[in-house]
């Protein structure tokens, strides 16, 4: 078979812009997939996830990053997790793996989301304008995550590190989402 005839386009076409000493950029090199498990004991779920991804299962509101920093698992609810991976086509490898446990259900989510990274000394101030959650670094620490609404759009906020946040929202409203973060940055710098 020849080369793919279609070129992929990310929701914001690789957007990247500086606002003073802050950067707002679309993150395009992540795969996202959701994981859900059947009513297994927690320890078994944990074992499966650890075996597959070499990372501990996080609590709700937290995410854990693999040692090689290429994979982040976050608990979006009691029985559902999101995996963000830039390990290159991990999803295909998982589902084509014969020994993949049949009590873990996977759904590809990459195209359902747009990911923005906002970083810089004004990142927190900008997020104050649209995020109702308390992102005070003493409370919302590295690798914490939260689901919330920002400018009427369902979103996920992840603290990557001090002054750097990943923001996820639905890909179909990516332009509106971008606009809300852009305006926030413009209004605080």
């Amino acid at each position: 078979m020849g080369k793919n005839l279609l070129s992929p386009i990310s929701p914001l076409n690789g957007y990247s812009k500086s606002f003073g000493n802050n950067i707002l950029e679309e993150v395009v090199d992540y795969e996202i997939f959701s994981l859900a498990t059947s009513g297994e004991k927690e320890s078994l779920i944990e074992q499966n996830i650890k075996k597959l991804f070499k990372v501990d299962l996080p609590f709700v509101g937290k995410s854990n990053v693999s040692e090689n920093k290429k994979l982040r698992v976050m608990a979006v609810s009691l029985d559902q997790w999101f995996v963000l991976s830039n390990s290159g086509d991990l999803y295909s490898k998982l589902i084509s793996n014969a020994s993949f446990p049949d009590n873990i259900y996977v759904t590809m989510q990459t195209d359902a989301w747009v990911i923005l990274r906002v970083s810089g000394t004004s990142a927190l101030k900008a997020l104050e304008r649209i995020c109702p959650v308390n992102l005070d670094p003493k409370i919302f620490q590295k690798n914490d995550m939260v689901r919330t609404m920002m400018e009427h759009l369902g979103s996920i906020v992840i603290c990557e590190e001090k002054d750097s946040y990943l923001l996820l929202s639905a890909s179909s409203s990516a332009k509106s989402f971008l606009h809300s973060v852009e305006v926030s940055l413009k209004n605080v710098i």
Binding site: Q109, A112, A170
Partner: peptide
């Protein structure tokens, strides 16, 4: 288990 894939 369910998840929306409308945008995906």
């Amino acid at each position: 288990h369910i998840i929306s894939t409308t945008d995906a």
